[in-house]
């Protein structure tokens, strides 16, 4: 099967809307803690709405590439097989982990992903602050090996949709912590709050999609600490709520840096180095911020 018979994300849109209304209502009643700022909310939702346009423009090309790889597959995974769905659940989630890690640790892909982190709020509307340039950044190619292994384009698309829908509900401060067993295995609001935090000790952690086990396996897990409340946003927050700035500011930053590059080393550093990389080290990366933080919080002897 090439075309997915349904799109989990489209089916979930009414749930997204109702869940946001519920979160606002509960906060309004004072039953849960969350904040909504009008322009921030509009920006998040508009980014989610605008995401559909590049999706249509590039979707055909991405689909064609996936079909091409699928035609050269080494196995065939039956669409109806339960074991196939179990396998793609884990493999797609592992792929997502590496996609997400790449999207944070290398500037070219960070440029496409950063907009999702630009809100200083953490509520369900933040979940919909999606990228407009992910297709251009080419991270979709990370899923091609699944087609090569024999998962149909339809199955891959459905599992990607399931992952995206799962990740919606974890964008909230309204839920504290889930049961211990759940926190141990699954990505949760608590784990993902840490991922969205700009506190130095929380940077570049918890890349999980559905299962938090990948972060624990690859050493990027960071628990939410009661003594360190999350402060949301990016290291250098945006100065306003303009959509084009949210969507493209890091790309423009890359172009500006490339224009003044003096060597291939600088070009590579600005594009493929970690966000914040600079030839003279005058800017901060996540690593340098963490180092400074550790220096300041080193126990005194």
């Amino acid at each position: 099967m090439l075309h997915a018979p349904f799109d989990p994300v489209t089916l979930a849109v009414p749930f997204f809307v109702l869940a946001i209304i519920l979160e606002i209502a509960l906060a309004r009643l004072g039953w849960v803690k969350t904040h909504y700022e009008t322009r921030d909310t509009l920006t998040s939702l508009a980014m989610g709405l605008g995401r559909g346009i590049p999706g249509v423009l590039l979707g055909g090309m991405i689909f064609a590439a996936t079909v091409f790889v699928y035609q050269h597959r080494i196995f065939t995974v039956p669409f109806e097989a339960i074991w196939g769905w179990v396998a793609i659940f884990f493999l797609e989630d592992l792929t997502y982990y590496w996609f997400h890690r790449l999207s944070h640790e290398r500037r070219f892909w960070w440029a496409a992903h950063v907009n999702h982190h630009t809100s200083q709020h953490y509520n369900l509307s933040t979940a919909l602050r999606q990228t407009w340039t992910g297709g251009i950044a080419g991270t979709w190619s990370l899923w091609l090996p699944l087609a090569w292994l024999g998962f149909s384009p339809a199955q891959i698309a459905i599992q990607q949709g399931i992952s995206l829908v799962y990740q919606f509900w974890i964008h909230t401060e309204a839920i504290g912590r889930m049961p211990t067993w759940f926190e141990a295995v699954m990505n949760t609001p608590s784990h993902h709050r840490v991922h969205h935090a700009r506190n130095p000790r929380y940077l570049d952690s918890n890349y999980a999609g559905i299962l938090i086990i990948w972060d624990k396996l690859f050493g990027t897990f960071q628990a939410e600490l009661d003594e360190e409340p999350c402060r949301y946003g990016i290291v250098k927050n945006l100065g306003d709520f303009k959509l084009l700035r949210v969507a493209f500011h890091e790309w423009l930053g890359i172009f500006a840096d490339l224009a003044r590059s003096k060597s291939i080393h600088e070009v590579l550093g600005y594009v493929l180095g970690p966000p914040g990389w600079s030839p003279d080290g005058s800017r901060d990366t996540s690593a340098s911020l963490k180092t400074k933080w550790r220096e300041l919080h080193r126990p005194t002897e």
Partner: peptide
């Protein structure tokens, strides 16, 4: 969201 006045 504006009506709810939930800004920080």
């Amino acid at each position: 969201a504006a009506w709810a006045r939930l800004a920080k």
